[in-house]
Write a protein that binds this DNA or RNA. Structure first.
Lengths: 236, 236
DNA sequence: CGAGGGTTTGAAGTGCATCAAATAGTGTGG
DNA sequence: CCACACTATTTGATGCACTTCAAACCCTCG
């Protein structure tokens, strides 16, 4: 029954090179949980004992400003790990987490991670390269805020949503509501709405509700990625 | 002669808990270098064999967009380490580095770092917590771009420049030219100039050339940090 | 069918960027 | 020590992008 927990773990780069028995031992301490949209997992500064891997659905990470507004740190799809950095924040979460779309999560005790960081050769190295990847992605995100216009950021997001070896025309669905998407991209919902229209005019894509059709990837790429410090596909 | 290299190393959190002999062994492989403003250390994608610690002066990290513009990743003061993440980027630098103000740097072979990551118990953990701190700082920076206005970002930068236990009135000097500062804060030089004027009107500070006088830290803090997800002082 | 959230559209305002030009500041050679 | 050249910074005028406020529209679900 619990065996497939290890499959989920091994699918993540962080655990991919651990020995079978080590993954199994972590797997034993994990739990699979299902939550409905809107459920709050934890708040910023809460004492932390669990990290999570998103198995399906979407999870929103957020912080609140001093004057009460919500800032979206990130919105995570399946395959992503979060909460693990509490280890380096005095065992409290550095941001809040809420289910953005119905999700199943695998919880992993922080204690298990800590133990492997300290005692399993090579694991800390994997954590390091994982942290480095995260940092690169975040740096790219920060760049976008300075360099790209709102429509470009939207297009860039669509490109990241498209599967790697997709053949045109690509059809995809916006994975969560547009209010959240706008916040994730650092803009107002109205700006998102207008940005999508601008994109349609500029790059031949069509949008109906949450359905996006991209007949010409090259045109979209050219529109968005010319202002960027990375070539498409924009991860590295 | 080379003994004080170890002092520089030990001043950095990364090496602070290594044993004396281990630090000395790294110290032997280091070199102290002086560069004039404008000197290019390396370019993005260059093969990397050295990391650096800024001993004095300022170093600018940058990337170029596809269409040739320069994006400022960060501008580092004394005490900061850079270039080390090449380890996780296939031994090539993820951004260019140039001397922003006359600087002396301590170069550290990446090979030495790698070796300690792999063979020195506890070192990888230190790298991890270092990476985590960096990530937090970067996340805060990214937030600022979305949440804060240009004058608020400027004020926030001034607050970070002020020594921790400073008593009013605080006097400080902008450490590098305003064109670079504007880029570092993600705005145009004209916006910086006008933002400084706005700040003067709003928070009682005075600016003459590169000299800034802050008679009332509370007022500046209130102006800037109310829109932020962290209380002053805004690191954690 | 009506209520309510999510989304779009419209109109007006604001902040930052852009272009252009003036001014201050810095270093050089006479 | 001054005149000149050159760069850094400020100021002014204007335009554009994004925000804000307001209202309409759409869609789903009771």
């Amino acid at each position: 029954m619990k065996k497939h927990y290890t499959e989920i773990l091994k699918a993540h780069a962080l655990f991919s090179t651990l020995k079978e028995e080590q993954v199994e031992e972590i797997g034993k301490q994990c739990t699979l949980l299902s939550y409905a949209k809107g459920h709050t997992l934890f708040m910023q500064e809460d004492p932390a004992s669990l990290a999570y891997i998103v198995v399906s659905g979407w999870v929103k990470l957020f912080r609140h400003t001093v004057n009460g507004e919500e800032y979206i740190v990130d919105v995570l799809p399946a395959g992503y790990l979060f909460g693990e950095n509490a280890i380096f924040h005095g065992d409290s979460y550095s941001c809040g987490a809420e289910i953005a779309e119905d999700a199943t999560l695998l919880s992993i005790p922080l204690a298990a991670l800590k133990q492997h960081i300290d005692h399993t050769p090579g694991f800390a190295q994997h954590m390091l390269s994982h942290a480095s990847r995260q940092q690169t992605a975040q740096e790219r995100n920060k760049e976008h805020l300075v360099i790209q216009s709102a429509p470009q950021r939207i297009g860039c997001f669509l490109l990241q949503l498209a599967p790697k070896e997709a053949k045109e025309p690509v059809t995809l669905h916006l994975p969560y509501d547009k209010l959240l998407l706008a916040a994730r991209l650092g803009m107002q919902r109205e700006t998102l709405s207008r940005g999508l229209t601008t994109l349609q005019d500029a790059t031949d894509i069509t949008i109906q509700g949450a359905t996006v059709n991209i007949p010409n990837l090259g045109k979209l790429t050219k529109y968005c990625c010319t202002a960027c410090t990375s070539n498409y596909p924009c991860e590295e």
